[in-house]
Every structure is written in structure tokens, then in C-alpha cells.
Design a protein around this nucleic acid. Structure first.
Lengths: 108, 108
DNA sequence: TTAACTTTGTCAGTAGTCGACAAGTTTAAT
DNA sequence: ATTAAACTTGTCGACTACTGACAAAGTTAA
């Protein structure tokens, strides 16, 4: 699982013996654009994650993990972020969750 | 450091006794929009990170850590991602780096 | 060679972001 | 209570980036 998201899709597709055109149809997108996605020249739109999950009978949560980790890695690579960024990110998620709880408490 | 990026800016600003208008001028943006940023209703554009660093004499790397961790946390919170996402992200960064090294080797 | 598959380039349409301004609200001092 | 400064919120046009679509070129394997 250390591949990019594009490489990941490609593997899924070829393992199932599908052509770009066939998978593109399932995902409701152009085969040329799917090619670009697999080669990392376009982004896969997160709105299509559920379609991808159904196409390959995958767990959506695993897919989200694969997808968003890819997004984050690309950003951090591009901007040369320290690996501490991910640690702080985790802290912030908890902070956001706690805020959310508080807000719910106030609301109801 | 468990705050959002907006709260982080606000703290920096108020600690220095600056008004929105004053800081906005330093960052070359509208005070109304800076208000939205501090309140999490608009994004802080990453292109302005260096201006922010100079305004508060901060280390740009620390600032990037703060900024991108915030971005990632928000995404993960919004899409309810598993915390495994961050672990996989770290693996992928190493993968990207190794690819990059290989490409450099080929190129030169 | 030829047919299927894949890659690459381009472009118009569209969606989302950003700067700017106006109007409204809050805060603090008098 | 009045005022002024600080802050918030809503809106809108301009700008930018993303997306779908198609054509054309390149690759692969029979």
C-alpha cells in the first residue's frame, strides 16, 4: 500500500482485466482522463470514491484511507513539510472533535 | 498548539496588540477577510505563509507545520477518516521521496 | 499491418476562490 | 446612553482552477 492512488487504481483495474474504457464507464468519466488519473496527471475527485468502492467491491473506509493519505503525502512532499505535521494533525483532529461535542452540547 | 490555524493567527495578532486592519495590511488583504480566516470561515492562502512568518518573526517551517496539519485535520474530520490515514500518509511520503531520488538518478 | 488500448494536448464550460465593499454588530471608553 | 473603533457578516464580480470532452498520437500484441 505504499503506492500512489493512481497506481492503486491501475492495479485494481488490471487485476480485474478491465480496460480504461470499461472502468471509466463505471466511474462515469472519460477514459483519457482516467488514464491521466492513473498516471498522476489529474486528481481523482473524492466524490467518486463511492463509485470506485462499488466497482471493485471495496470497503469505502479503506478507500478513503488510501485516497486521503495520498493527498496529504503529495502536499507534504510538494511543500517539504516536516513529519511532525502529521503528529500535530492528529492532535488537531481530536481538538476539532472536542469542539464539535461542545457545540452539540450547547445546541441541544 | 491544538488550535485551528485561524485561532492560531488570532492569538499571534492579539498578543502583539494588532488590530485586524493592521495585520491585514501586513498580509496585503482585507480586514474583513482576515476576520473570516481567524473565525474559520475562509481559508488562509498558503502563498501568504511567508508574509505571516515575517510579520511575526516566525520560523517558516513551524508555520507550515501549523498550517498543513490544520488542513489535513479539517479534511479528515469532514470525511470521518480513520487515524490510520496519517500512518499511511507517512509511508507514502517516503515512497514519493524514493521515486524522486530514482528519477533524479535517471535524469542526471 | 491493423485493431484495441493507452497517452497526451487542448479547450470551452463550470465551479470554486479571492478581493473588495457595504452594512451590521460588538466592545470599551466616556 | 453615545460614540468611535474594532470586528463580523453578506454579497458580488473577477479571476483561477477543475472538469468533461474530443482529437490525435503513441504503444502493444495478435
Amino acid at each position: 500500500m505504499k503506492t500512489t492512488f493512481g497506481e492503486y487504481i491501475r492495479k485494481l483495474r488490471t487485476d480485474k482485466g478491465l480496460t480504461l474504457t470499461e472502468l471509466a464507464a463505471l466511474l462515469k468519466l472519460d477514459s483519457a482522463n482516467l488514464s491521466k488519473i492513473e498516471n498522476g496527471k489529474r486528481e481523482f475527485n473524492e466524490k467518486r470514491l463511492d463509485k470506485l468502492a462499488t466497482a471493485f467491491e471495496l470497503d469505502l473506509n479503506k478507500l478513503k484511507t488510501e485516497y486521503f493519505s495520498d493527498q496529504f503525502a503529495k502536499k507534504m512532499f510538494e511543500f517539504n513539510c516536516s513529519s511532525e505535521t502529521l503528529i500535530i494533525a492528529e492532535e488537531k483532529i481530536n481538538y476539532l472533535k472536542s469542539i464539535n461535542v461542545k457545540q452539540s452540547e450547547i445546541k441541544f
